[in-house]
Design a binder for these strands. Structure first.
Lengths: 143, 143
DNA sequence: TTCTTAGATAAGAATGATTCCTATATAAGA
DNA sequence: TCTTATATAGGAATCATTCTTATCTAAGAA
């Protein structure tokens, strides 16, 4: 998903963050890259236009954005952490072989789960979010 | 869960793996520690009785065990990978604040999900496993 | 039982991802 | 414009994990 410069700025402001060129570039990168980029992919993307950005800054900013709810961390079987800017409730379809992640939106399923856990409460736990990790294989895997 | 030495041995054999003292100790550690240990926790646990075990061996063996279906990788928001020896279908209740993971078994839910995805097929994807990550907060968090 | 060898391990170097440190720079409110 | 709390650059440091190679051993064969 591509956002306008103004939209990105507004998102940072809404999250209560100072608007800096670095933060702007990083949030833009996560949105533009779309498919759950790693910090490294974000850095590579940004350095094309903005070579000076420091590695540490990207990690810092991504952390800050996670804290502020602008992005989410996505961990896979692999080592590097990945980031997701889509904040609407969604799930992940994941193939370990290719390390590919696809978003899965399904409101019907979400309602089903919500209803289920409204009835069947968990002891001593306050649910904030439920994420399905759907594991398997893409049929069109290039292998 | 605590397993007898004989049970552990049998599990290794059933998985088609050679039975070595290291593998025995590692599988025992994952079972005994119970709560989704990281590789580091496994190493610390084993070194008390078996100081010589090499770091690389633990990582190797854990990978081999994942390949052979003896343990599963468990991913959290944090960097380090964690491992789970419970292979029955179950889900995870996770609190990012404390990094605590609890197992959640619920056959009724599993059937619900199975029925749901039997009807609503995903295009171009063969589902092998569905794991819920239930995120939130434990009420008794010591904080 | 002993022999054989494919496969496993030790030890530690190497790598890759991430965090930390601190001097400098800057966003944004006064 | 000034002020200052906050952010960034640059690079060292740390942490998790993988790799390399010499040595060792489990387990089937003789």
């Amino acid at each position: 998903m591509k956002l306008s410069s103004e939209q990105i700025k507004q998102k940072l402001k809404d999250a209560g963050l100072r608007v800096t060129p670095q933060r702007h570039a990083i949030l833009e990168a996560v949105y533009t890259l779309g498919n759950h980029p790693s910090a490294e992919q974000v850095i590579d993307f940004i350095r094309v236009r903005y070579p000076g950005i420091a590695t540490g800054t990207v990690y810092n900013v991504l952390d800050v954005m996670v804290e502020s709810g602008l992005v989410k961390r996505v961990k896979t079987d692999k080592d590097a952490m990945r980031y997701d800017a889509i904040m609407n409730r969604h799930h992940h379809i994941y193939c370990a072989e290719s390390d590919r992640i696809e978003d899965y939106f399904d409101e019907e399923l979400d309602e089903l789960l919500q209803a289920y856990f409204r009835k069947k409460k968990l002891q001593d736990f306050k649910i904030e979010d439920i994420i399905l990790q759907i594991k398997g294989n893409f049929n069109d895997n290039s292998e």
